[in-house]
Design a binder for these strands. Sequence first.
DNA 1: CAATGAATTTTCGTATAGGAAAAAATCTCT
DNA 2: AGAGATTTTTTCCTATACGAAAATTCATTG
Lengths: 223, 223
Amino acid sequence: MSPNDASPRKTAPDMPDTQRAGFGRRLHDLRRDRGWTLSDLAERSGLAVSTISKAERGLISLTYDRMRQLAKGLGIDMAELLSAEGAAFQPGSFAVAPKGTFKRQETRNYVYEMLFPELRNKAMMPMMGTLKAHDLMDFDDFVRHPGQEFLLVLEGAVTIYAEGKAPVILRQGDSAYFDSSRGHLYASAGAEDVRILVVCTDFEASELSGDVPVNGTSDTAPD
Amino acid sequence: MSPNDASPRKTAPDMPDTQRAGFGRRLHDLRRDRGWTLSDLAERSGLAVSTISKAERGLISLTYDRMRQLAKGLGIDMAELLSAEGAAFQPGSFAVAPKGTFKRQETRNYVYEMLFPELRNKAMMPMMGTLKAHDLMDFDDFVRHPGQEFLLVLEGAVTIYAEGKAPVILRQGDSAYFDSSRGHLYASAGAEDVRILVVCTDFEASELSGDVPVNGTSDTAPD
DNA sequence: CAATGAATTTTCGTATAGGAAAAAATCTCT
DNA sequence: AGAGATTTTTTCCTATACGAAAATTCATTG
């Protein structure tokens, strides 16, 4: 392979199509982007061809050590190898959210509505939330997830319990910004119900942590 | 565990001390930072206590699936779990590089001197390079590594071969900035030798891909 | 269309990760 | 200190990842 041989290479047998998913998909793309065959990557990473083949198809779950070797062979670092495809938010996108279209979610003492749930690859996930007055405590545990979080109190007063911090009371118009991976929990601080706006980053990463929804009705006809 | 139970917890038996390294160390710290026991994390992640114990001590190499579970249990994403402890550059550090103190490195057609090699945790690695005239081609392959790269031509003319791009010629004063994970290669473009300045990010990540440099001459007195 | 060549997938034996429970180490009381 | 409780480490067996080589698939070419 010489410096000038940038891309031209025989096409190769391949898996059906969109079958691949998650890590395997990522690995496959990284390899193909470079125009490499399984053997090429095997040689560079020190893994066996068969191992990479299986990994790309999700038949096995690579160990930490092998992933390190792969990252090195690909010339990237682990974080990059594992990053969920930096699919950027569609440039130029614009969307409005009619009041009724929110997607309602409920937890024990907390009701929130996700805004723009249908927009994929958002960097932020804004939510409107309602906290019932008094209704809380003896809650099992803190919430904790990747990314950062912004909170604005729209109505009422909220107590924020943050791990390792004394509880903080926020009133209408007050706001907070913090690392979501620090344990946290909201509760109504007064006698009235509370309305808040919460914006999270990395939201899907924590929720859809798995891969492939693999919807039962695969209507993505390849045809 | 209630919301107010922030930190107080029994101390626990532990490994000697700085024995741990790399991923195991990182995992151990993440768990302890939260004041969790092996059982706590085991319950949250769905792994067995013994598995986590071994992983923290580097006795086994976790599979991708288990690492995912751990990340979820810890409330962080994979990249964060695998990030090489964001050890920041020593605040307030200042260093000068007398001309002779560079650390000389040579590859086939390329000689470069790393500046400030003894400074650990640098975000950038600046290098002075010399390319022999004509001496190149039939070079095996592109260079590829994590991070970004800046190039300034000090003397002579350089041809940059970048994967998927037509070769580009840069003359004195010209510069380039690119993603180092795109395959790249420098060569003298004229009859004279070439002097260039190159600055990379994530340099140690690609070279000392392993863990713990454990430098021999640590002359970065904190004092 | 058969033959050729290159790439990928299967097969199968071995090495290693993963979990349950026992053993060891460390902490907390009185 | 000693007893008991908690946390971590070991042990041992099963499940699964890994690699070498054979088998298969796909694209070309005569």
